Amino acid sequence: MKLSVRLLGPLEVHGPDGPVHFTGARRRAVFALLALRTGRMVSRSALVDGLWGEDAPFTATKTLQGHIAKVRKALAQAGADGVLQTREPGYLLDITQVEVDVEVFDEHMRCGRPEAALRLYRGEPLADCPVEGWAGAEIVRLREALALAEENHVAALCRDGRYAEAIGPLERLVALYPLRESLWELLMQAQHRAGRPGDALRTYRRVRALLVEEFGMEPGDALRRREAAVLAG
């Protein structure tokens, strides 16, 4: 049985003998940083950056080594001894013994399965792991991947003619990602095709007001074409 690691939300780790319990947020973060790079060596300097960023203490490397020892102990207690390996100048998780939800999510997206990818999301990535530096950039990537998965899912609903079903999720998405014009365009399409052209035109006015008032820019070509299509019936 592989070690199961869930990063898309609060950290959850399950070994052959049950859940892995890390004492302390820093130890959860150390493990999460390694899990983000499963199968690849993560140097001690990269781990220090991921834990403390520019505010790393003078004793950071020594403190890191203490955290690594405690993480190894927690893994061993769950039947996952040997998963965390030393590879100078750092450490890695053995890819043959670990399954990470981020990698499964990315595979679903590559294969055009956004609905399956969305089922893996439980909340903010690494929600209970205080990370800095490059790990912060990775969290931003995962947020963007979530937005793309949600957009692909509602686009699939529209392709299947399930316009009324797509409207509610699209209203939530434009509130979450107000600058993604493609979501507004999908919402207008869904409203129009669901027999609600008045709502589609009001949606166009909403996004135009947002873009003009907040950013001094007009809607893009796709939104303007969608408005013209609604007006033309």
Score class of each variant (00 low, 15 high):
residue 174 V to Y: 02
residue 226 R to D: 04
residue 109 M to V: 13
residue 38 T to N: 07
residue 11 L to R: 09
residue 59 T to S: 14
residue 21 H to F: 11
residue 6 R to A: 12
residue 173 L to P: 01
residue 64 L to C: 08
residue 200 A to I: 05
residue 120 L to C: 14
residue 62 K to A: 11
residue 135 A to M: 08
residue 41 M to D: 00
residue 233 G to V: 03
residue 139 I to P: 02
residue 72 R to L: 03
residue 182 S to R: 13
residue 99 E to A: 14
residue 82 G to A: 07
residue 209 A to H: 02
residue 154 V to I: 05
residue 51 L to V: 07
residue 66 G to Y: 06
residue 41 M to V: 10
residue 162 R to Y: 03
residue 4 S to R: 12
residue 144 E to Y: 01
residue 25 A to I: 01
residue 195 G to P: 08
residue 45 S to T: 06
residue 218 E to P: 01
residue 212 V to F: 05
residue 28 R to Q: 15
residue 83 V to Q: 03
residue 54 E to T: 13
residue 143 R to W: 07
residue 198 G to Y: 06
residue 21 H to V: 14
residue 80 A to D: 00
residue 45 S to D: 12
residue 90 G to P: 05
residue 19 P to G: 10
residue 131 V to Y: 06
residue 42 V to K: 01
residue 141 R to M: 09
residue 89 P to E: 08
residue 233 G to W: 07
residue 87 R to C: 06
residue 85 Q to D: 05
residue 199 D to L: 09
residue 169 P to A: 06
residue 37 R to T: 03
residue 86 T to D: 02
residue 54 E to K: 12
residue 218 E to M: 09
residue 170 L to K: 09
residue 84 L to P: 02
residue 161 G to I: 08
residue 56 A to S: 13
residue 136 G to D: 08
residue 37 R to A: 11
residue 60 A to C: 05
residue 32 A to E: 01
residue 12 E to V: 14
residue 123 G to I: 08
residue 50 G to S: 02
residue 132 E to I: 03
residue 140 V to I: 13
residue 122 R to G: 14
residue 207 V to C: 11
residue 18 G to E: 10
residue 168 G to H: 03
residue 52 W to V: 04
residue 61 T to F: 06
residue 181 E to D: 10
residue 26 R to M: 07
residue 108 H to R: 11
residue 59 T to D: 15
residue 77 Q to Y: 00
residue 51 L to S: 10
residue 182 S to H: 05
residue 193 R to V: 02
residue 104 V to I: 14
residue 205 R to M: 11
residue 12 E to T: 11
residue 205 R to F: 04
